[in-house]
Write a protein that binds this DNA or RNA. Structure first.
Lengths: 217, 217
DNA sequence: TCCTAACCTGAAGCTTCCTTCATCTAATCA
DNA sequence: TGATTAGATGAAGGAAGCTTCAGGTTAGGA
């Protein structure tokens, strides 16, 4: 699988007519479907095009190479998750830390696990395609949203909100990855979700001013 | 990159004389070196063999295919980290939860970050090689060690030690991954390590019987 | 010393896919 | 309706690299 060449990762041609936007969309959907059906090792550009009902040539009209295609699919998926989190963060402005944590975790796991297979499949291509960059970009977006939410909490934080947000993200991503790689996801899911809430709430409690008062007493 | 064929992942021939064990070792070391120098996309079996000072044929005498080679390298590295954690878990038997957490986190980060570049490079091949299985196996080993340590703590836990251990692992791995993928690791490392200790300690506190007493008061 | 098994060599076969481009069709506009 | 641009096609070029195997070299036992 080719290393993402730094040049030429942008779409070769922007779709203007209706039929071409339809093609691009079909191609992106087909990418995921092929990934799920045959795995990344046997995902070929020809196969994706066939599945999308177009020819390879068409595919190459909108994606300069295979890598760019996979990146686009990955970005689409991650953006969905990030947007879900941003929505929650706005929703929860001004609430308590515990409410925030619960809502955030539920939204995150919900979005990630909506279709588990896609998440897993995309994880597997991520490293072939400089997925780290895309992941990082989304991470930064989410971090800003979470930090802002935290800063608005009833209980003031005693620490840098960005750092705290970063820890929450690490914990959430760590847990979801472990779940996704686990072979008995169903069995563990609910218990682990509850436990993650406990984990995060305990931490936030420790980061809040109220905690200091409690210690002083 | 070929999907790991389920058949034939075992070494083709076991080294018996001294020179062949030396070859195998050199090949494994060369694998990492090549990975670091040219990246996984340009890692070829021929290049690894050259770097190791042997011919490709020799390489294929001990590894049935490229995938098996990478798996072996990955397993070697992960085993090192796991062993470090097992050592700490035994060392910390009978201590307090806070002591355990601190020691565990320090050992883990130390082992993972000893050579950051190797960790990152191996993450990148992991998905080409069914690294999830190897990761899972090591995860199970570590889980057992951590759970046993936790069960021996001064403060009795109010929860299943395996679940608690699992959360610790998720948090630690999540944090280390985020650090490894970050572009300013050095700057954040110490702050994040401290914060991880706070995170884990708060959680363990919440899981301990003492916490319930405190709540009752 | 001689023989056998272990070990090593590396050119070449073979497969797999990415990507191009010359050519064709459909849509839009004057 | 004719001209122009957008969109689609898919056979074939070409590169890359994994893996083999026929034939050599080294080590250790009898």
């Amino acid at each position: 699988m080719p290393q993402p060449s730094l040049a030429e990762l942008e779409p070769r041609k922007l779709p203007v007519q209706a039929r071409s936007t339809a093609s691009v969309d079909a191609i992106l959907k087909a990418t995921i479907q092929v990934l799920l059906k045959v795995g990344k090792e046997r995902l070929t550009t020809t196969r994706v095009a066939m599945r999308a009902g177009v020819s390879v040539g068409t595919l190459y009209q909108y994606f300069p190479n295979k890598s760019a295609l996979l990146q686009a699919a990955l970005r689409r998926h991650l953006d969905g998750v990030t947007e879900a989190m941003e929505r929650v963060c706005i929703e929860q402005t001004g609430r308590t830390l515990a409410e925030m944590a619960t809502a955030l975790i539920n939204a995150f796991l919900e979005a990630k696990m909506r279709d588990v297979k896609t998440s897993v499949a995309l994880y597997s291509v991520s490293s072939d395609v400089d997925g780290a960059r895309i992941t990082r970009q989304n991470g930064v977006r989410a971090n800003a949203a979470i930090a802002e939410m935290l800063a608005s909490a009833r209980e003031p934080l005693t620490r840098d909100p960005k750092l705290v947000a970063s820890m929450l993200q690490s914990a959430m991503v760590g847990v979801s990855r472990r779940l996704l790689e686990s072979d008995e996801l169903e069995k563990q899911f609910d218990a682990v979700r509850e436990e993650l809430i406990v984990l995060v709430c305990s931490y936030l409690e420790a980061c809040s001013a109220r905690h200091l008062e409690a210690m002083a007493r």
